[in-house]
Design a protein around this nucleic acid. Structure first.
Lengths: 135, 135
DNA sequence: TAGTAGTCCACAATCTTAGTAGGATAGTGT
DNA sequence: ACACTATCCTACTAAGATTGTGGACTACTA
């Protein structure tokens, strides 16, 4: 399951996508409209900024905005960034790979199945962008 | 990601599948062969027993064994039992559904995508059984 | 230079995960 | 009946993740 943090991140990004090219949006505005705890949202947006998804402007007239156009930000990227691995097993993850202890990948029945699950999931989340979230 | 507990559960079930119809298997044997902490494994097997996946026999010559044949135990069932929801969002889960707070499911962009992810995943894990884990 | 708004660091409460301890209970063989 | 064996059960703990909060600092704008 996606963490609350991830769900908040998507709600915020959704909001910023809808307001894309309308200039910086206040954290407080996003927090209020999307009902996200203000300080928690601060942390999340800062993280997204450090990952080059968002950019910000300080002072009056400031706020957060998308750094790239919404079509260019994949859902998979956000999940990996905020939530972590998409795969169900470490030994199957493309971005967070870890060798299975006491389990030979070549003869592990779970392994192959989880590769399939991973690919089925990626086929969806790698091909959707923030733009697809706003209908 | 599947928890360690879930991974242990699958390893144990894999072992019991391989030994299906060979009579009860000691917890200690499974723990040793699959390198799972003994007492932790006890809890896991007990849980699987309560869920009617396993059955057990006490005393000398006792141990654990599959209650049903391996072909009849779906991977999805085990994941839900030991790990929890398969879906990425509560509002998309079939077995652990919870309404989304502050988010209308009909107009939530994430919702529809996560329904797709769920279905793609279920298509795999609902159609594989313990038998498929042992190659 | 006053006010606004993001930045950054540290902390805290709560929950989950991963395991451990030890005795109770029930079945087996002699 | 008795000793032995193996599961059953409750409770506990330590560590880590999650979900926040508080407060000072920095940068920008008018």
């Amino acid at each position: 399951m996606l963490s609350k943090k991830s769900q908040y991140a998507f709600k915020a990004l959704e909001y910023l996508t809808a307001k894309y090219k309308e200039g910086p949006v206040l954290i407080s505005e996003i927090a209020k409209k999307k009902k996200i705890p203000l300080k928690f949202l601060e942390n999340i947006l800062l993280e997204l900024k450090k990952a080059e998804i968002l950019d910000s402007k300080k002072g009056k007239g400031g706020g957060y905005f998308l750094k790239k156009s919404p079509e260019k930000v994949k859902v998979a990227t956000i999940i990996r960034l905020v939530n972590g691995p998409i795969s169900m097993l470490p030994c199957v993850s493309l971005y967070f790979y870890e060798r299975c202890k006491n389990c030979d990948e070549k003869q592990c029945g779970l392994h192959d199945m989880m590769v399939e699950v991973r690919d089925a999931t990626l086929k969806i989340v790698e091909n959707r962008t923030l733009r697809d979230l706003v209908v």
